[in-house]
Simulated assay, not measured.
Amino acid sequence: MKPTIKDVAKLANVSISTVSRVMNSPDSVVESKKVRVLDAIDKLKYKPNALARGLIYKKTNTIGVIIPDIRNPYYADIIRGMEDASKKLGYSLIICNTDRDKKRLFSYLNNFYEKQIDGILYTSDPVFPDYYHELQRLRMPIVLVSTHSMEYDLPSVKINDEQAAYDAVKFLIDSGHRKIGMIAFELTDGIAGWTRYHGFVRALREHDLEECKDNVVFVEGWTYETPDAAASTLLSKCPDLSAVFTVSDELAIGLLCYLNEQGIKVPEQISVIGFDNIRLAKLTVPKLTTVAQPTYEIGYRSVEKLNAIIEQQEDPVLREYLPHEVIERASTRRLNR
């Protein structure tokens, strides 16, 4: 049987609270007692139970991470940033994949509550009213990652999606393109759907290209057939396009594959620009021009922001936006005017 804190206290002839203080605040214990406790720990080979310690000190040094689709390569650098920041600040991560299933989400939230985790990092998805009420009921600190909420005062870290989409389309326009299309998420997606479509339309309007605003195919959900179907529909609808903006690199990579299969050369016949700058964007043929999100920094900063809430430190920025940039590679070309 594993030794317990009671066994250590008995062998050292001190109280259980003294053993706890030696492990967590040794400077608060007189030297003679501290030596006895440390000797007892060494003799018994005692390893403190993290959950029990959390019950005493109301902190488990654990953060729960909610991810909607762990297979999506977009989350790789976000999680790496979270991990590095957590290690620096003394936290461990529990990563849960919801598949955007409400029952799974609520189950994970209740598991987090039972395990008395210190806070939650909620990634990518909108916060619906019933989600918010559940979070309020559980009373756990939360930071939204790569998403935000305008309805509720929840701290968040992300980029400005509307401006990023605008910059992507303006890049195409500045490159001489006048026949531009878009593969977009449904407008009901308030995080990356409506915002990125609005950026697309704003760029067209400001550059007198409003006739292109209907050159859009909307996709909902993801399968490996999604990019093919979207690309086929878009090119049937608008066969004279010279450039296509897609709202994710996964969609852009699928579009590149479709165009290759159709014998359509990129960028000679159609330029393609993606969104996210996942690692695969550097490995496509041709290499993908894209809007780079600072995913590692988003993950890292979200942990710092959550830690400030846990430690009751002041953080003056509720909805925090990190900078993005357009990375030009070989999948786009500049046209002669």
Rank of each mutant, 00 (worst) to 15 (best):
Y91D: 02
S20L: 12
Y152W: 03
S25M: 15
T60N: 06
R104W: 10
E261W: 11
V303A: 02
C238Y: 05
A308S: 03
D214G: 02
D208W: 09
L11R: 06
T60C: 00
K59P: 04
L259R: 08
L255T: 01
S86L: 11
M82R: 03
V303E: 02
S232L: 14
F112Q: 02
H324E: 05
L38Q: 13
L105D: 05
E186F: 13
K103C: 07
I298N: 03
I79K: 10
R301V: 12
L241F: 07
L318R: 09
G64Q: 01
G193W: 01
K305S: 01
A85W: 00
S32T: 11
E297H: 11
V247H: 08
H133R: 15
L187Q: 13
Y46G: 00
K88M: 12
A192L: 11
R139T: 09
K213I: 11
S331G: 09
L187H: 05
S15M: 10
L306R: 05
P3R: 05
P286F: 11
D42I: 11
R301D: 10
P141M: 12
T18A: 13
A292H: 10
R334L: 10
L259E: 02
D125P: 02
S331T: 10
P155R: 00
L135A: 01
Q293G: 07
L51A: 15
L138G: 05
D39F: 05
N111K: 06
S146E: 09
V19H: 08
E225A: 10
T332L: 01
M140E: 02
I66Q: 04
E261G: 14
G64Y: 03
K43I: 13
P286C: 12
Y132Q: 05
L138F: 09
I253N: 02
L204T: 00
H177S: 00
I63H: 01
T295V: 07
G181V: 02
L135N: 02
T62Y: 03
N215M: 03
L306Q: 05
E162V: 08
S175K: 01
A184H: 01
D214V: 00
G190E: 14
L235M: 06
S107L: 14
D125C: 08
V216T: 06
I173W: 02
I309R: 06
L51Y: 14
K59M: 09
I180C: 04
K33D: 08
A281S: 15
P26S: 04
V65W: 07
Q293L: 10
P129A: 08
Y75E: 09
N215S: 13
D208Q: 14
A168R: 03
T284K: 09
R205M: 12
P286G: 06
V303M: 02
G299E: 07
G199W: 08
V35Q: 15
T123S: 12
I270Y: 09
E320M: 06
G254K: 00
D99R: 14
L234Y: 00
T123G: 13
K33E: 10
V14W: 11
D84E: 15
S28E: 13
S92A: 13
K43S: 15
E162W: 12
L144G: 00
I66P: 00
R337A: 15
L93S: 01
G90M: 07
Y132W: 10
I309W: 04
V169E: 07
S124N: 12
G119W: 11
D249M: 04
A308V: 04
Y132M: 08
D77G: 03
T62V: 14
L335M: 14
N160Y: 07
A292N: 10
